[in-house]
Design a protein around this nucleic acid. Sequence first.
DNA 1: CTGTTAGCGCCTTCAT
DNA 2: ATGAAGGCGCTAACAG
Lengths: 349, 349
Amino acid sequence: MNIGEKSAGKQPPRRVTAAMVAEHAGVSTATVSLVANGKSAGRVSKHNEERVREAIRELGYFVDGIGSSLAKGVSSLVILVAPDISNPFFAKVIAGVRSVLGNDYQLLLSVTDAGISPSATETRRLLGLRPAGLLVHAPTKVFLEDLAGPLPLVALDAPGIDPSIPAVNMDVAQGAEAVVAHFASLGHTKAAYLDGSTGTDTLMVRREAFLDAATHYGIEVLPGNVASSMIDVGAASDEFSRNWPMWESCGVTALACATDTQAFGVLHAARHLGIRIPHRLAVTGFDDLPYSATSSPSITSVQLHATEVGRQAALKLRELIDGQAPQSLQSMLPSSLVVRGSTTADGGL
Amino acid sequence: MNIGEKSAGKQPPRRVTAAMVAEHAGVSTATVSLVANGKSAGRVSKHNEERVREAIRELGYFVDGIGSSLAKGVSSLVILVAPDISNPFFAKVIAGVRSVLGNDYQLLLSVTDAGISPSATETRRLLGLRPAGLLVHAPTKVFLEDLAGPLPLVALDAPGIDPSIPAVNMDVAQGAEAVVAHFASLGHTKAAYLDGSTGTDTLMVRREAFLDAATHYGIEVLPGNVASSMIDVGAASDEFSRNWPMWESCGVTALACATDTQAFGVLHAARHLGIRIPHRLAVTGFDDLPYSATSSPSITSVQLHATEVGRQAALKLRELIDGQAPQSLQSMLPSSLVVRGSTTADGGL
DNA sequence: CTGTTAGCGCCTTCAT
DNA sequence: ATGAAGGCGCTAACAG
């Protein structure tokens, strides 16, 4: 009785193992392993290599990731931890990551409930998969502490992060300044800000940069002229409606929103309230979502380069996995202001 | 020399194994396994259980998913294969799935490039993870054939699928009929259709159901009045602009789009062309995306119940994983028409 | 109740 | 260039 017979006798159609391939090809499992992993160069004879390849094809063998991971101590998984997958930002980030990872690593996303970092339990389970590396969007301190290990990790979109942690950020501060500069160039002198209330670092940076730049450019933003809402069209719409009477009485003529989604809400409310945009009120968003170019009016927004964020993060991660220190630990991608109809009457053309 | 010492001597901070915990607690690894997996009821003495728990806590032990999976022959992973993650539909589906899976299974998403099913290679790599089950969005025949195995699998949003495969679908045909009925009730007699060109089954069903219902309701849809574009705002906008002159000359007064995204494009183009909506042309979408309620005009659309799709699919998958035959192999969730400003002048109020 | 044992499938020395 | 053998960490089956 050999392995082949034993397995053939069992009821469930047993999976094809390296041992079966070895037997079929008349070689040892070691040789199969070498060939299957493309490490046969100069270590396996042409003749045997061919026989193994043939056996693999005939039997339909493929390397079992679990067994392989156990033996190697690490899997070929790269896990992207992404709260809030509905952010259109991600589709592009993922494309960028995939373009760099190719077939060498397998990308999987771990999604949590809207905007929440994984719990300690979830984190441990992730680690239990022995991923080759982790890509983490907007990680919280707690999450990074839970990780506590020498696992290759790159943070994305984490402005306030510990400078010793590899990260790829977008220069949202620069974007916020560009918004202010744009307002100033249009002659606005009193502005308001609609913040997002999820408390992520990037939002904080956007707001502070906006306020600082406003001071610098001599644009007045009264404390009472900073509101905050959930990142949701309806919530933003409501919040704006509630605040407008006061803002109007203060002479506000420009409003910057923390996200395009909120800008949509503002546009919606403005329509109902009969506020002409951009004539009576100039509005800006942030993120440059796909619909922002075609809404009515189209939205002046800060464009972020999501694909490039994904690419660079994956590049850094690969360096880490390979045991190198990344060329630069953290990098910052520029953002750019896209001027459209919500701030200038001819911007949409 | 024991295991503990040996590991302490090595340079890399060795991971905590069940053997270490066993030694620390003065029991066998089997006992540790029982306790760690919550299977200790009536199989481990209170005293030992307590000692093990303490050791686990002190050492910071957690079960290694890889070792566990190898021993059990299957992991606790549920993989959601999702082409086109940018579809806002998914965030809700995921929420539904998570609510059912809870802590028993770990959900990970496998994302491919926009709208493409995973390649055979990718599929094999997925299988190499030995997932407990697969949730597959809009699977292609090829993909299902690549799978070829007794793996628990539930398809989502796969209208044309083999009736022997467990699936959760949405009644998009009903939705398309509702659109036609709505047009008819408004007195339209000549309509056009803007299809999506990705070739997914759901789009085919939407189109055919629309055309059938049109015949039934006596609404004329000339063959030349069915156009098709990528599911993209810009592409739809262009396609509409190109077709409008002809449609107009045919007396078309109503246009159904295969997706809300395309409806946005139409709205955009209509604005540039000076076509008043809904007065001159009534427009409908499909999917009821978040922005559809607040665009200008807001879009009449077919609402799908994504969260429920996720819930039910996960429920079915659990039954399959547990070795039961699901109560109903396939189920169909109703869809409903949401009437808004793009078809009736007062719909947006 | 508890410990021992025998793998799960693979990869990697180490001899040959 | 090749094969035998020893784990990787865990769990299921079996003995006590």
